[in-house]
Every structure is written in C-alpha cells, then in structure tokens.
Design a protein around this nucleic acid. Structure first.
Lengths: 114, 114
DNA sequence: CTCATCTACAACCATTTGGTTGTACGTTAG
DNA sequence: CTAACGTACAACCAAATGGTTGTAGATGAG
C-alpha cells in the first residue's frame, strides 16, 4: 500500500523528527535563519548536549544540514525534505478524495481538472 | 515560535503516530474504506494486540475514530486531522518563503495575493 | 444455548528516546 | 601562548515504544 516514492524508513525518520516540540522549534528557527548549535541551545531549558542530539535527529531525517564555519557548526534547513513530507500527507488526502469510486469516475474528474 | 493553532502536544501525537510504517499503512487502508480492527490485523505479521495498540495510537492522535458496529469496532479515518497536519507543514514552508525579509515586502506580497 | 469471533486490557520484555554529566579536542580571541 | 568557546561523544538513567502472551467480557452465528 505504497503512497509515495519515499522509502518507509525515510518517512519514519522525518515524522519521528517532527514529533517533538523542541525539534519543530529548532526547525522553524533555522528555516528563518541558519544558526550555530550553541546559538540554538541558548533558547532552550536543557543542556547543550541535548540540543545537539535534537539537531542530530533532524539531520538524520535530512530536515537540516550542518555546515562547518570556523569553529561553529551552522545548521540550516533542508526545505526540500519538508516539502516532500507535506506532499506525502497530501497524497493521503488524495486517497480520501478517490475513495470507494470506480476507475471511470476518477478518470472523469482528472479530465475536469485539466 | 508558534506556527499553528495546534497545541504542541497535539502536533507531537500526530507526527508521532505518523512515524511508523504500520500505522501509516493502517491509515491508508481506513482512508479507502472503514474496517474492523481484526480485519486490519490480518494484513500484518504481528499479533492482534499489537495492531490494536497501533490503532490506539492513531486514535489518540485523532487521525482515526472507532465506531462500534455489532461486535466489531469499525475504524475510519479522520481526514480533518490529516489535512491540518499537511497545513502545518505548509506553514513551515511558508516561513521559508518569508525568510530574511522586511515587513514591508511581506505586506506587499500579501496584497498581491488578494 | 453454545461456541467461535471480536475486542479490551494487563503484565512482561527489549529497545529507543530524551535527558543528564563528564571528558576531550579543535579553533579563535586577546 | 593561553584561555574561552564551540563541538563531539561516551556513559548513564528514567520513561516511552513496539512487540509479546494470556485472560476475560460481549456479541453474533448456527
């Protein structure tokens, strides 16, 4: 029952990464502007190491990328992955629109849309 | 750094629920057609109780709802929640488009869109 | 009525997760 | 050069996750 071109493990990692307030907040911050890990860490009531781990989770999900700049590690967002996640959800919504209908009706609607 | 009208805990639960292949597959199945828990369970190489737990996770996330029908419990999708999740991701994408720009430019673009 | 089916839920287990502290190492500021 | 900063990573811990088996209660079929 495949809905997307993603591997299941990739989707797992992306949604897992998004399933935490701190990580979504980090993502929102670096989308607006790339920041060093320690700059990010200053905003949260937890240790630097904890934030470092959150960034690592986002990185494994390919939602962010780190780029060395001097002694700092700049974290920047990977909007492509975010977009693909959004499109995956939309694909599920599409399943809904096409639910319980014959192939003729779906083809008919597809023509209308052109 | 709020991006949506959702409570953080709600978003946590939704993405957490989506972060598992089996659960995404269950969701896809019940989007197409409502099914009983045991009917769902037949498709997966795990115990009935395990599938039951997966459905419970989807239910806590408000992605599905159970409806008693005789001795069966019919699971059906809650597309509204799915849609809200998609819109949340789009909101993050929107942050990207509006990144690093002055308030004047954003207002100008908003007017264009009307 | 009786039996098979569907569901609920508890107890248990291994692994992962989200946090901590501590240590070590490269880099830049002064 | 030296001290401070930014990062990396290991070890540890409590709690959550994803699975199991087992027991028990409703409900429908025959």
């Amino acid at each position: 029952m495949v809905v997307d071109e993603w591997s299941e493990a990739e989707a797992d990692r992306v949604f897992q990464a998004l399933a935490d307030v701190t990580r979504r907040d980090i993502l929102a911050r670096v989308i607006r502007q790339r920041q060093s890990v320690s700059a990010l860490a200053r905003h949260y009531p937890m240790s630097f190491a904890a934030v470092q781990k959150h960034v690592a989770v986002l990185e494994r999900a390919a939602l962010v990328t780190k780029e060395r700049h001097g002694r700092e590690q700049l974290v920047h967002a990977n909007v492509t992955t975010l977009h693909r996640a959004a499109r995956l959800l939309e694909a599920y919504e599409q399943l809904w629109r096409h639910r319980a209908r014959g192939i003729e009706e779906i083809l008919a609607e597809d023509q209308e849309e052109e």
